[in-house]
């Protein structure tokens, strides 16, 4: 079972845990991303996330399809937040349940690493004295 969601509203880790716990699994891996207060010495005021939503959902589906074909997993959840986020807010939650821990860890790691490379979501970091589209320039 797969649950993919892009949301303008705050993500709810409790809800994600409840959904992923509801299975006959031996292990669950949960990754929660969080907005840091500082990036390379710059004090972060807020982050703005946007996406090409229909393509982002499609790319996330490719990722979860690959996970299901590669590892023995039971449930896979990917929730990504959009809009304006502040320090401490949660931009992403990934959860995987599996019979054994190796599959859960490996799949979870694969999802976040691949998401960061391929899914059309962009974040702009707003600092006290400037702003930057993350990863845009070499």
């Amino acid at each position: 079972m797969v649950d993919i969601k892009m949301s303008q509203h705050p993500l709810n880790p409790r809800e994600c845990v409840d959904w992923i716990m509801d299975s006959e699994c031996g292990g669950i891996d949960l990754f929660i991303g969080r907005v840091r207060s500082e990036t390379l010495g710059n004090k972060v005021v807020q982050l703005e996330f946007e996406s090409y939503e229909q393509m982002a959902v499609k790319e996330l589906k490719l990722i979860t399809d690959h996970v299901i074909a590669t590892w023995s997993v039971q449930k896979v959840l990917v929730h990504h937040r959009l809009g304006v986020l502040r320090v401490g807010d949660i931009p992403v939650i990934i959860a995987v349940s599996a019979e054994h821990r190796d599959a859960a860890f490996d799949a979870c790691r694969y999802i976040i690493d691949t998401l960061k490379r391929t899914v059309p979501i962009w974040k702009k970091e707003i600092y006290e004295d400037g702003e930057v589209w993350v990863a845009a320039h070499p």
């Binding site: 090409y52 393509m55 990504h80 931009p91 960061k116 059309p120 974040k123 589209w133 990863a135």
Partner: peptide
Amino acid sequence: IAGDDEYAALDRKLDSLKEIAIIPPVSGG
């Protein structure tokens, strides 16, 4: 460049694509 919600190869022809988008470096997560 994405065509119809998929990354498009350089030799992909534009004619048949309904929706084209430019995808700068992504930075989700």
